[in-house]
Computed example of a mutant assay.
Amino acid sequence: MKQLFTILFIIALCSSCKDKNKIRNGKLKVVTTTTMITDLVRNIGGDSIHVQGLMGSGVDPHLYKASEGDVSKLSNADVVFYSGLHLEGKLVDVFKKMGRNTNTIALAEILDKEKLIGSEYFASNFDPHIWFNIEYWKQLTNYLTEQLSALNPENTSYFEANKTAYLKQLDALETDIKKTIATLPKEKRILVTAHDAFNYFGEAYDFEVVGLQGLSTATEAGVQDVQNLAKLIIDKKVKAIFIETSVPKRTIEALQQAVLSKGFKVEIGGTLYSDALGNAGTKERTYLGMFRYNVDTIVEALR
């Protein structure tokens, strides 16, 4: 209750002193949530905007709570871009409390809901991990460019040029990963991970995807979940299973031990980036680098 009161007080304070003419006096002030959205905004906005990302490498957006510092950043932003589909579930209440004082835009809301993977177990009723379908990421790229251009019309041609260049990189990424995936026989395309983050990846690139936890990492895996998945791994002779950077590895290690106790050996094939990008200074710090790394890791381990 005390934290809620503090957040509400900061929102009110920031709203009362917010300078409505920040754009005229400098760069567009943008706040982003996940590392994927931050990377996308930086690719399109470039040097013409000032970006502050709330979440860092390895941060789980399902469980992320806004700090007092975050609320101050959000309230003083010209625009807040977030993924949406309830991915950043604990931030939604903060956005609502801000009301119309801050412009918040959920990029994934532009996607055709009839084509998304539905889930009655997730708050939005949809799987929010849409960045693992590159075609959806292209749609977000186009939508973001439109929104930035509407907010900052004098830089429209700059945003459009950046969009064109980035879409070409996404095309090249998709060509590359399809070639890599083609080297893995279809019967070996079974991806077992800590939670259900890779369903769009499986749908787009013909993998059977099984997560030990549900769509949200807030969902706990029970003993029966572990035993059922261990049986599947043995029955289908899955060679490797995968840890995720934003999820504690103990659940996958427990799964590995459960399989071993039944007389079958399964390797931990590596660590995948699911809900966050990599550290600064690595190739995986970008969406493009993360995607290539994940595909290379998956294919090499399962091959």
Score class of each variant (00 low, 15 high):
L8Q: 12
I11G: 09
C17M: 14
N21Y: 14
N21P: 07
R24N: 14
N25G: 14
K29F: 07
V30T: 06
V30K: 01
V31M: 01
T32R: 08
T32E: 03
T33Q: 08
T33R: 05
M36H: 06
I37Y: 03
I37L: 13
T38A: 11
D39I: 11
V41D: 05
N43W: 01
I44D: 02
G45I: 03
G45V: 03
S48M: 07
V51A: 08
L54P: 04
G56D: 10
S57Y: 11
G58H: 11
D60T: 02
L63N: 09
K65I: 11
A66W: 01
S67N: 06
G69R: 07
V71D: 05
V71K: 01
K73D: 02
K73T: 05
N76H: 15
A77D: 09
A77F: 08
Y82P: 01
S83I: 12
S83F: 11
G84H: 04
E88T: 09
K90I: 02
K90C: 05
K90N: 14
V92F: 05
V92T: 11
V92Q: 12
V92L: 15
K97V: 08
N101L: 04
T102Y: 07
N103F: 11
I105V: 15
I105M: 06
A108L: 13
L111N: 05
D112E: 15
K113R: 15
L116Y: 09
L116Q: 04
I117L: 15
G118Y: 02
S119C: 10
F122L: 00
F126P: 00
D127L: 10
D127I: 08
P128H: 05
P128I: 13
I134M: 02
E135Q: 11
Q139H: 10
Q139W: 00
L140T: 03
L140H: 04
T141R: 03
E146H: 04
Q147T: 09
Q147S: 06
L148Y: 04
N152K: 07
T156F: 03
E160Q: 15
A161L: 09
K163T: 05
Y166L: 07
K168R: 14
L170F: 10
A172R: 12
K178W: 10
K179M: 08
K179H: 13
T180M: 12
I181V: 11
P185I: 08
E187L: 09
K188S: 12
K188E: 09
R189H: 08
I190H: 04
V192M: 08
A194Y: 04
F198V: 10
F198W: 08
E203H: 06
E208C: 04
V209Y: 12
V209N: 06
G211A: 11
G211M: 12
L212C: 10
Q213I: 02
E220M: 10
A221M: 03
G222N: 11
V226K: 02
Q227A: 14
N228V: 12
A230T: 05
L232I: 12
I234H: 04
D235Y: 12
V238K: 00
K239W: 00
T245L: 07
S246Q: 12
K249W: 08
R250L: 12
E253W: 00
V259K: 01
S261M: 06
K262L: 09
G263T: 06
K265S: 14
K265N: 13
E267M: 08
T271A: 14
T271G: 07
Y273E: 01
S274E: 03
L277D: 01
K283D: 15
E284N: 06
R285P: 00
T297I: 11
